[in-house]
Design a protein around this nucleic acid. Structure first.
Lengths: 205, 205
DNA sequence: CTATTTGTGAACTCAGCAATACATAAATCG
DNA sequence: CGATTTATGTATTGCTGAGTTCACAAATAG
């Protein structure tokens, strides 16, 4: 099933592993993010993770399983960013501003992988493999839930149940769209303007 | 360079073609749309277009050229829909509503190919081939230009030069985002609500 | 009818890749 | 040390696909 990572507090029998789990997770995520599922070969993944091909199969499963691991890891990292924004800001507007502007910045950072693993995988891999479909659903559901958590910081934005869910869906859509627009060449200033329009639409509506 | 389609008004020498150009364009578009570049084989494309593999190479070029043809055709079809919306409506708000709701409907129509060829190709194929990059840029630029044309129907939405360009970019982003959201499972009613929020944001800001 | 032009179908080449099998390396245990 | 356990590196298998080649099909021109 899921990766079988043994307890490493005490020394164990057998040959020790030549990879670290964090490196594997980051390597899988980065490689699928940059290349997509079809163009990421197992050699690419092995090199990026520092784990031998045989080890990837043994501990994580086949290529589809590796994508699932990467997507889950990617979504988890976003969870942490949202949790930080909630902790660091007083209002929903401020926290949203921080998260959306950070996305705009990353999407126009030439050093970062372009686009978004979640969006790319959603468009590219829906209806291909049930395991991947489940991971896509998890990642997108978690994203919208994070948007809802940000909105829920302010009581006046969180009139349950309708408006909050609708606003969360709207925010999800605009971030998804900024991903595509950025990949199409939209510059950072324009993305900032989109963020401002978006937050204005949420907080006045 | 571009496809060399001979004049067919008069009978010509040689064996006649076994395919029609419109069928080729629609077949290429539909196949790349459903399968993406990597997973659409030349056998798939040949079958969908009714043109032999050798004919595809002879008249259109290699696989990347075929994707360019499909993307251009896809963008052109959207141009026509926008032109129709402009002709059939009095105000920008009404025309936008028609175009965006039609997108929401198509994105949740199980009979239609899921997603959007332009968005998928933008995320999937950027920085792979210069010919494809050029076609991606054309398609996305044309899309935003169409949004600007819709906005320009009302003088009060078209205060040049800043707001119109920014609003067009915002509209482009929200449609791009609806594509991803729909692929992730967002239902039609929610997409409609996103459309309403979007048009509200444009016309009050 | 013969030559010429043009499009087609099928076979071939060459490469890349996912997945597996298995021998070997590297550690601990007794 | 010798046995055992665990991870790795490599070779192999089997498949798929892009792009090309070429003989043949199907039309017209003279």
């Amino acid at each position: 099933m899921s990766s079988q990572i043994r307890d490493q507090t005490k020394p164990e029998r057998g040959r020790p592993r030549g990879f670290e789990e964090k490196t594997v997770l980051d390597g899988l995520t980065d490689t699928f993010w940059r290349k997509g599922f079809a163009d990421a070969s197992l050699d690419d993944l092995s090199q990026a993770t520092g784990a031998a091909r045989a080890s990837l199969y043994k501990f994580y499963g086949d290529k589809a399983d590796l994508l699932v691991v990467a997507l889950d890891h990617y979504a988890e990292r976003f969870d942490l960013r949202v949790q930080a924004a909630i902790a660091e800001n007083e209002t929903a507007r401020e926290a949203l501003h921080q998260v959306l502007r950070a996305s705009a910045e990353r999407l126009t950072d030439t050093a970062a992988p372009p686009g978004c693993l979640r969006c790319r995988t959603t468009l590219e891999m829906s209806q291909v493999d049930p395991r991947i479909d489940a991971a896509i659903a998890r990642a997108n559901h978690a994203f919208t839930l994070n948007m809802a958590r940000l909105l829920a910081m302010d009581a006046d934005l969180a009139e349950p149940p309708r408006p909050l869910a609708q606003h969360a869906a709207f925010l999800t859509a605009i971030v998804n769209g900024m991903v595509v627009s950025a990949a199409a060449g939209t510059d950072r200033a324009t993305l900032y303007a989109i963020v401002d329009t978006t937050i204005g639409a949420i907080t006045t509506a």
